[in-house]
């Protein structure tokens, strides 16, 4: 499972990652063509990896995942030892009788994403909402991780 390490934002090699992901897509496309697997390109070659974003505010970390067309009860969110994990499963739809499938590009099966948070969080105050196919998890920082203004006193 991918473990995302989050460094200082300035140090994150966005371009390199994007290039890698583009290369991955290109490879998938080639495999897809060669195996004539127009159906289920994601099935065997690549596990389902919904895109994950992480943002930081002074008070919290906010993680968002793109999970279109899921049911709320199919998504599990947990926080353990500073690591946020989101997992779930989408079952393939059972084809109805006399139904034929023309195209099947949507991924299904299990997914799991984890991200280790760079600062301590209050696990039991974590909130998750699911709207328009996007899961948003808000993790308030632990008191000791919040920035503090220190008053300067004149001595």
């Amino acid at each position: 499972m991918p473990l995302i390490r989050t460094y200082r934002p300035s140090g994150w090699p966005y371009a390199t990652l994007n290039q890698l992901s583009a290369l991955g897509e290109e490879l998938n496309r080639l495999f897809d063509l060669s195996t004539r697997a127009g159906l289920r390109p994601n099935d065997s070659l690549q596990s389902w990896m919904p895109p994950l974003d992480l943002r930081e505010t002074p008070d919290a970390f906010i993680a968002t995942l793109e999970l279109p067309g899921m049911k709320r009860e199919q998504i599990e969110v947990s926080v353990h030892e500073g690591v946020l994990s989101v997992s779930g499963e989408r079952l393939p739809s059972e084809p109805a009788e006399g139904c034929s499938v023309f195209r099947s590009e949507r991924p299904f099966g299990r997914f799991q994403r984890s991200v280790s948070l760079p600062k301590p969080v209050q696990a039991d105050a974590t909130k998750a909402t699911y709207r328009d196919g996007i899961l948003t998890v808000t993790l308030p920082k632990a008191e000791e991780a919040k920035p503090k203004q220190i008053e300067v006193s004149v001595g």
């Binding site: 067309g69 139904c99 196919g133 996007i134």
Partner: peptide, 22 residues
Amino acid sequence: PRVDISEQKDEYVLEAEMPGVA
């Protein structure tokens, strides 16, 4: 968007993934 398309007896059904779209 990624799509699934199926044909049933009296209709086609198309499903397209558009996360973040209302």
